[in-house]
């Protein structure tokens, strides 16, 4: 019995390790591929080098695709946070007659094939005379990301005690004071998670960008087209740089948040 139990535990641990390997081997492979300087992949590399990173940082294209991705992601974060937070109030804070219908309609874009949504938007933009650019990509991303931000903020709202607001009002606080002193501080972690989701999902999105960004090429679209055709050793290094940039931005935001909290406490 004891041996059987030990064996079962080992099998379970191996299963989890296998799943993690499945998920991470391709990511590690990108890093390994970026350390070569040859035109074609010949692994193991004869020479291990960071040349590709130097070339990537020296290339105008790298800066251009990053700045396009950043413009899209920042616009998406700003708009989706406002719309999503308002949406979450309607989704979770109040009970009203159309709420159940609103909730169901809101999740529809999440349960929708993204490339098909992108193609539908592309056709619609042409129909109304809107030339595709990074701005139309923002609209495309928002259709998918606003519902997700709404859900993320809503989760916070379901654990929120409305009675506190009433108590504050009874004690003579103004509506604005209630929002500033009671509602926002408690809702803020949800809103912040929503912002992070919006940023990361926009930064990494391929299927919507590919059809809606027109001549402006964001990072994932550039990587996709260069992988499918016209491969160069720049591809893996730009992939690593792009992923690292998004991780750094998220860490920086988290640090700013933590610092803000510390200042408020002091």
């Amino acid at each position: 019995m004891r041996v059987g139990r030990r064996a079962a535990a080992v099998v379970r641990a191996l299963w989890i390790v296998a799943i993690l390997a499945f998920l991470y081997v391709p990511i590690v492979s990108v890093v390994l591929a970026s350390l070569a300087n040859t035109r074609y992949m010949r692994f193991p590399h004869k020479v291990w080098t960071l040349d590709a990173y130097r070339d990537a940082l020296g290339s105008f294209t790298t800066w251009q695709i990053h700045s396009i991705s950043l413009s899209i992601a920042v616009s998406v974060v700003l708009i989706a946070t406002v719309l999503g937070t308002l949406g979450a109030v309607a989704f979770a804070r109040y009970d009203w007659r159309g709420r159940s219908l609103f909730q169901r309609i809101l999740v529809l874009p999440i349960f929708f094939p993204q490339p098909v949504l992108g193609l539908g938007l592309l056709l619609s933009f042409s129909a109304v005379g809107l030339a595709p650019s990074w701005k139309t990509a923002v609209i495309g991303h928002l259709v998918w990301i606003v519902p997700i931000v709404t859900l993320v903020v809503s989760i916070r709202f379901f654990g929120y005690d409305v009675a506190q607001e009433e108590a504050a009002l009874d004690l003579g606080a103004s509506r604005w004071q209630v929002i500033r002193e009671i509602t926002m501080p408690q809702l803020w972690p949800g809103v912040f998670s929503g912002m992070l989701f919006a940023f990361l999902l926009s930064w990494s999105n391929l299927p919507l960008s590919i059809y809606t960004s027109g001549p402006d090429t964001p990072l994932p679209v550039w990587l996709f087209t260069r992988t499918a055709t016209n491969y160069s050793p720049l591809v893996p290094s730009v992939a690593v740089i792009g992923t690292a940039v998004s991780a750094l931005i998220v860490i920086a935001l988290a640090l700013v948040l933590a610092a803000g909290k510390a200042v408020r406490r002091a």
Partner: peptide, 15 residues
């Protein structure tokens, strides 16, 4: 990995 672009991960699978 959800937050790492599909392009990056599929490229990794490819190499």
């Amino acid at each position: 990995p959800i937050f790492i672009s599909e392009s990056v991960r599929l490229f990794g699978m490819n190499v």
